[in-house]
Design a protein around this nucleic acid. Structure first.
Lengths: 255, 255
DNA sequence: CGTTCAGTTGACGCGGTTCAATCGAAGTGG
DNA sequence: CCACTTCGATTGAACCGCGTCAACTGAACG
């Protein structure tokens, strides 16, 4: 029952985008080529670069190709909260930000490559469609599902912050990031690369940097994870999932 | 520069819906009548009724007409987190939930009245449009702005849970609810009705019942609020806003 | 008139923050 | 090539915000 796409840009810079969208809904060969063609327009940004300022005009919609970014907001006293981490393949600036002003800033956390999606639909803005819904190249469904996935992840985040302990939260985030890395072909069964400092993790998890450090150590002492440089090994994913009450997002009603 | 709508259904059950949508973007007289006509189809539900179950099929899109509801999720051990409170006029089941499965449950917190929006666009589902974008009765823009507003409120919620103390969080929520009540014409300058138990507030704020109680008392002792039955009086909204770092949502770029 | 439910209060303890210091790795300039 | 600085990770000690447990109150209800 798997839809086979003849086109698989495994080595292309667009690979993460292709993999993510294809997982949400199988891409036709034509759609795949459309996406692949975007690769030409990639731009780069350094860590710390502000891609979009809260309250500013909207970012032109696009995709992260490599590196990690985040959506965040600052309190007036300097406290920071990160709303979501953005990995390669993630869409930026589509449905959810479709209002008059940006509701959050988008900041690069590492060196990143980014591509605007404009070439795909010059003119028409929010719903990501080349021409119209009946066009076989139209990607509206994919972008809708992408927004749906993000919505679920944001709710997971609220659960973590509101109702889970530091230990549970950290385990949950690690599992989420492992799952998302796997979705874009950048993780194996038991490990993935986490290019973030503990300070950034603290601002994601709503914890102090010191406590993030201690929590990670506790997870290591409990033989649940290993950390080697930026690489995280999951030693017992099942037990982690139990601790974190983690359920991976459901992409398809029937699977 | 204010657009005057000749139609103002002040006494209609649809009044909250009309006021909210009109604040997002002025409604034409025709659109107002379209909305007003929905009032005929109102349904009722009692407190505790589950309007939509997480993981179940999608709810048909609609509006809350009276009473309060919430979106929530339960952890497997019974802990509950409420993602958002839904007041009269709020839209349910549109853009953000447009995926294969519901990402959260929707539960009535009080007795409520609800109306499905189906009569408005029999056939076409997610974007809330009677016919097409060029139709003068089309409400796609309004629903997009509604989703944008909700997105901003959800991010506020993440900030509260991740980076604010119980005192700040509670002040922030009270200001948000006052602002939203005013948006639908159900608050005056200094007070509004809060028909929720402290247990529900605890599940919104990510706190224990006991601590919500103590925090509310502290706010009262500090002469910032008064509570008389379900009525909340804001004694010093400016100071509250300073404590909570509260900034009301921006609905229009120019205002 | 008993039961239930929302609100309230006190005692106690844990989870997480804060402050501060140390250490190694990675620049950076002279 | 070596001080000097910077940054991220780590650790200890003290403190406190908030949760937990438990008891009590008053109002609403059958």
């Amino acid at each position: 029952m798997t839809v086979k796409s003849s086109y698989k840009p495994s080595e292309s810079p667009m690979a993460p985008v292709w993999r993510r969208l294809n997982a949400l809904k199988p891409l036709s060969s034509g759609q795949s080529q459309l996406i692949e063609a975007l690769g030409e327009f990639a731009e780069a940004a350094t860590a710390g670069a502000i891609l979009l300022n809260e309250g500013g005009a909207q970012l032109r919609p696009g995709f992260i190709l490599s590196g990690w970014a985040c959506r965040q907001r600052l309190l007036s006293d300097g406290r920071r909260q990160i709303f979501s981490l953005m990995l390669p393949g993630d869409a930026v600036g589509f449905c959810l930000e479709a209002g008059p002003l940006a509701t959050a800033s988008v900041v690069a956390l590492t060196k990143i490559a980014f591509v605007a999606a404009e070439p795909l639909f010059d003119g028409e803005t929010p719903p990501f469609q080349a021409h119209d819904r009946s066009d076989p190249l139209d990607l509206t469904d994919h972008m809708r599902l992408s927004a749906y996935l993000e919505e679920g992840l944001l709710l997971d985040h609220v659960i973590r912050l509101g109702r889970q302990t530091a230990y549970e939260r950290t385990a949950h985030l690690i599992l989420e990031l492992h799952w998302r890395s796997a979705l874009i072909g950048q993780a194996d069964d038991r490990s993935f690369t986490l290019p973030l400092t503990q300070e950034i993790l603290a601002d994601v998890l709503g914890l102090s940097i010191v406590h993030v450090n201690r929590t990670l150590q506790q997870l290591r002492r409990d033989h649940l994870i290993e950390i080697a440089g930026p690489r995280v090994n999951l030693l017992d994913a099942a037990q982690l999932a139990g601790i974190a009450d983690f359920r991976p997002p459901v992409l398809n009603r029937r699977s």
